[in-house]
Simulated scan of single mutants.
Amino acid sequence: MQAAREELREEAPGIRVTLAELIDIRHRVREVPLFSTPHRRSPLVGLHHSRLRGRGIDFDQVRIYQPGDDVRTIDWRVTARTQEPHTKLFHEERERPIYLLVEQSQHLFFGSGLNFKSVLAAQAASLVGWAALAHNDRVGGLVFGNGEHHEIKPRRSKQSLLQLLDRLVRVNRHLDGQQRVDPDAFGLALRRAREVLRPGSLAVILCDERTLSEAAEQQLSLLGRHVDLLLMPVFDPLDRALPAAGLLRFAQYGARLELDTRDAGIRQAYRQLGEARMARWQRLADRLRVILMPLNTQYELVAQLREYLSAKPEGRR
């Protein structure tokens, strides 16, 4: 009977993710304009257009200099040859590498809302991946957590994205809440991203909100010098505030903890820890001048993203 109840819980929606579910998300890409199209410019990428570096832009043509052109783009060789000022024109590189760093660890195997954090992170990775393919970008990434690292190199290929999603599902299916978390997993994933990504790439960070450590923050800062970042930390409302639910008992790895949530001081201290984590992510995003989009297990993914995209620039983060 107990085994039957456990199996029922395992099959409940929002606890595990399936490959079919992640594939079906491709039908919702049109609901969320994550990337620009010829007819619509996404507010998400407005930040990146002014920060393209290295091979993120390609030379297009040379034309006669016009008032208002940036003098730094003057082609001096053509100017000397024709005795008339000419300037270089550039266009954005069409195929941009999109690299998804997705955490699937015991930290995310929890949720009090619609989905577990691990499921929400997988859904977001899938949506961004399908949107990138629709935009003719190259998609790859790395699934990390619980001592595992599975990497797929960025390619403009549906098969490449499906391989990444399949790895994501396989790791997700093995989460059981009893594995020990590797404290270095996030930092190792970020170091790997620094090794494989070239300037002009976009790294999408999908991790537990609590994963940000001093070492990881340093790695993100180094990564942000060369590539663009989209920060999407995942959280559950219970990560930020405790309800007055009486005496709560916790057990893990043989250790036990009792917490009296009727104590207002305990609830306040817990809430302050949650607020400090939020503030730390915001300071990091402000310092690196990147977009921060925290994802809440309490709400449906597409609805959250649409709200971010419809917000004014000063409130989008």
Rank of each mutant, 00 (worst) to 15 (best):
G147F: 02
S105N: 08
E93P: 06
E84D: 13
L114P: 08
L120E: 07
E84C: 12
H150P: 12
L133G: 05
A121Q: 08
G140W: 02
E92M: 03
W130A: 00
A132F: 08
E148A: 15
D137L: 09
A132E: 04
R94G: 00
A124V: 11
L101D: 02
Q104S: 13
V143L: 10
E103N: 13
Q106H: 12
E93R: 15
E84A: 13
S126G: 03
Q106W: 07
H149W: 13
E103Q: 15
V102E: 11
V102L: 14
L100V: 10
A122L: 09
H135N: 14
E95G: 13
A132W: 00
L101V: 12
Q123K: 14
G129P: 10
V139M: 09
Q123F: 03
T87M: 03
G111C: 01
N136R: 15
L108I: 02
Q104V: 10
H91P: 11
S105W: 06
H107V: 09
A124K: 06
L142Y: 07
K88M: 10
G113C: 11
R138H: 02
F109H: 14
I152M: 08
G140V: 05
N136G: 02
G129V: 02
T87Q: 00
Y99A: 02
I98V: 14
V128T: 02
N146P: 06
E92G: 11
H135K: 15
G141H: 05
